[in-house]
Design a protein around this nucleic acid. Sequence first.
DNA 1: GAGCGAAACGAGGAT
DNA 2: CGTTTCGCTC
Length: 717
Amino acid sequence: MHALNEAQIRAVEEGDGPVLVLAGAGTGKTRVIIERLAWLVSEKGVDPRYLLALTFTNRAANEMKARAAERLGLGRIAAWVGTFHAFGLYVLRREIEHLGRGGGFTVFDDADQLSLMKRLIKELPPAFERVSPREALNWISGLKQQLEAPKPEDAAAREDEALHRLWTQYHEALHNANAVDFDDLLVLPVKVFKAHPPSLERYQRRYRYVHVDEYQDTNHAQFVLAKLLSEGHGNLFAVGDEDQSIYSWRGADINNVLQFQETFPDARVLRLEQNYRSTKAILKAANAVVSNNVFRLGKTLWTDLDAGDPVRLYEAENDADEADFITADAALRNLPLHETAVLYRTNGQARVLEEALRKARTPYRVYGGIQFYSRKEVKDLLAYLRLVASPADDVSLRRILNVPPRGIGATTLEHLNSYARERNAGLMQVLRDVETDQTLNPRARKAIAAFVHLIDDLALAAKTQGPGALVKRIMDETGYRKYVEESDEKDFRARLEIVDEFASSCAQYDREHEGGADLLTFLQDLALVSDVDNLEPDAPSLTLMTCHSAKGLEFGHVYLVGLEEGLLPHASSQDSEEEIEEERRLCYVAMTRARQTLTLAYARRRVMYGESRPSEPSRFLGEIPEGSLDLAGQEAGAAPSRGRKGAAASAAPTEDIDVARIKMGTRVRHATFGDGTVMYTAGAGKKLRARIRFQTGRTREFMVSKAPLEIVEGKGR
DNA sequence: GAGCGAAACGAGGAT
DNA sequence: CGTTTCGCTC
């Protein structure tokens, strides 16, 4: 690792008070925080327990912890390093009594919220306008991230009326289920701090140096949390890059960066502009893209590294061809798989890639998408655990009440529901009372009594056994294992594997927490785990992940695929320039993950909703200067021929221009537009059309036989 | 109430 | 195309 440069040293050794480090991609942002933690401890003599560092992923936190400890020559560092949400959870656990909630609580994840909201909407009186569960949740989450609540006067519109009612119902349901959602992990601590200044002061005294990584991705709640914690001492050290702000849809507020100096008048703003990650070629291309954004402070990244290989572009016939090319190209170039990543905009793109990689027997790992903890089987078992730990958790109860089938079907559940509503009681309580209910048929009553018994037994076992042992018990006593085994002949093995993997990871927890494995704590921690947290950097396999997941990571070799209009930029972002700019930043983030080589790709056709549809190359491709992009896949053997029909080759030339020679990469000259390169062709013979990108950066499509074109040379490169 | 096939619906990104 | 919901039969 190189020595720190002057700008980095200035940042690390900046004195007390608010500091914003504006740092571009690959300039050593995280390292600056690590070095500063180390510097505060070893040079300034600060007790590490006074240090707080907040990140966005557990993976980033773990890396920070490990590197800071290593840097200080310690086994582990005593500073509090973790995600905002984990810190919120930590505060909530300790300050819960201030919220008038006794004992523990569970954390609802996205799927829990969704199933809760679905039920609430179903139960909405018919007079209310229908809203979708997702829409309602986004509305609620948006307000909470702003630390706001709905204003009664806004309930005028019919749709808002429903939303307002859902807000109330939703929070009542959370409260009754003894649960909090992700936003609550930030909102509730802020609430406690504002309502109980003495408890805030305790945290301020404890955490005298507050650090925030990826500051551009903080939402308002996170900003307020960081600001509150650093009030008094003022030691807020924020590191961020406005060009990498890609989470505005999750409530991230770029103004936290842009207005840092206004918020903290004595703040110092430092810049890091030397990139240590990428070659000149990669940096130039990435800069060319992001410089088209208007809403940025502007930085000029530069590097001392080599020019490196040119950035390549592969123009694929379709998505399968794109996947085949990447598979073949990575093999041909003999790339070290653990240093190679394929990045894409949407999780759905992983499927075709996986198929190609499996066929070629290239080992790979997909991060994100259908995550382990959101697999149906795991969620079912988790629901049992949660119900045992927290009997008020209706969402979990509903999930497993009849899984495996035990004779408590829809009719019975409807009956129970109306009972619960009438008496305003939790569903579990209703189940317990059912013995005295004569209106329910005896068969259902018997089934319910058996279920209540089962849960009580498990709850008893939970007092003496850890989560691992409990999961094993659940699988046996509820018949869940048998249920999976017998459910489906096709993929029951894979599902069984998932069940067993979950059981063994719980057993691992038992071993790590011998004696004191608290079920509720276990479940709370689990709710914050994400897939990228478990990234194994040295695993000998290709990494597949979304551009979003790749934030904060780097790879020797990167393939960025699906550079098409409608995908990157995504179709749902095309109506406003702000959204396009965020897509552009996302593209920039993805490109700057690469250290040595970057390969871009797009497909002329892509399968969506089960049908193949034509697609246009991304506007971001046109923003990369002509000379900075090489066409890939024309070396012999690199490109498989699947889907390629040789459109131009099959037809006889009719005009003075040799239509057969017009292919991807052909250099041509247009009478009015000048020199350019063929990006792709469509049609054949007289009807051959070609999209040409000119040196001016513009692209246009022509009917080759009609346009005033001449061929300058054969294939490009 | 369970199980099955048909029909309808739906994928943006994620702590 | 994959998943969820619907509607029918047993």
